[in-house]
Design a protein around this nucleic acid. Structure first.
Lengths: 188, 188
DNA sequence: CCCATGAGAGAACGATCGTTCTCCACCGGT
DNA sequence: ACCGGTGGAGAACGATCGTTCTCTCATGGG
């Protein structure tokens, strides 16, 4: 077995580190997790962690950015399997419901990060806004394809469902939102 | 001027303390605010603070509880001036828009607390859920009076507007939600 | 075989956390 | 005038934070 190149080694370590940090940050909150817990969970020496990310803030931003790519990617994969524009918009809420039902679901990671760090870290704030903007724009694209002028309500119902399910732990919010959207899209 | 009784003194100090703590917690996040900053902002000696609340967690819970009473009280005052059931529901969103436009608006204090402490403090979690339940029930009462079976969508639109305005800083979310609710309540 | 380079393990650093304790100044009752 | 006790100011405590440093060892090139 050939020794992995150091570049590839960095890539792998980054992935392991981001996995561990993302899980801990989401589970317990960002400030509640110390770098030493990240070290223990990732199995990487602190020194290597700080060579990959020169401060905790960088790690947080990287976690949010990678999660954004993965999260929206999975959403698009699920929704764009569906051919009909109207069904696509409804599929968004099916996907949300599945997400809400996952064990350990604890609301929107970006909203949580915003509440904790939005006023103390410009970079986290920017990351959160960028994610929310991208989510909005994605929904807008799907809704516009139906011809119904209801982009904003659909976005707000999705955000409301996420936050409500996050606090209550009940995935039903997704069904409630879905029903309302179905009505707004016509042909009851 | 008669010396205030010690009971009344406690009442006043509690109010001063809760004012200071609420402002700091909301502005910066709860974990980001140390008890010494609460002391400095309230002007109260640390000893007195710890006689009024025996731990930071108690203070946090008291802040959330008092804010809940005031916040919902003001909401009810605004909405129930309006006679017509349909207009009442719409008035909720006018009130939200005014709130969003206040300087320093940074989203929902309970959602923020949930993201930060929901997984580490049972008592904070309970407080957040109780607030959200009360908000839901209040809206349900108003919506049912209109006869339209749209309680859940209205709640979700309100929550979505709060969270969206909180992250983006743009009060327009309230108008978008209001417009959607107006349509759902019929008589476009 | 030797030595320099770099990585790993974890101690150490200064700051700050929540909480408690010390110390002194002030007070009403005799 | 004295004294017990209450309360304020802030030092102190142990823990933990993010970050850096030290020490040790392994390893690869001459």
């Amino acid at each position: 077995m050939p020794a992995p190149t150091s570049e590839e080694r960095n890539r792998l370590d980054r992935a392991v580190l981001l996995d561990a940090a993302e899980r801990l940050f989401y589970e317990r909150g960002i400030r509640a997790v110390g770098m030493d817990q990240v070290r223990a969970a990732s199995g990487l020496p602190l020194k290597r962690i700080y060579r990959l990310f020169s401060a905790k803030e960088d790690l947080v931003v990287a976690v949010l950015r990678r999660r954004d790519q993965r999260w929206r990617g999975e959403l698009v994969d699920h929704v764009e399997r569906v051919p009909e524009p109207r069904d696509r918009v409804l599929a968004l809420f099916d996907w949300l419901e599945r997400w809400f039902a996952e064990p350990g679901f604890r609301g929107c990671a970006w909203i949580n990060a915003h509440g904790e760090l939005g006023s103390s870290s410009e970079r986290v704030l920017a990351e959160v806004r960028s994610h929310k903007q991208a989510f909005h724009d994605q929904i807008a694209e799907w809704v516009r394809a139906t011809g119904a002028p209801v982009v904003e309500p659909v976005v707000l119902l999705a955000e409301g469902a996420i936050v409500t399910a996050g606090v209550s732990g009940d995935p039903a919010a997704a069904r409630h939102a879905r029903r309302a959207v179905a009505r707004m899209l016509g042909t009851v």
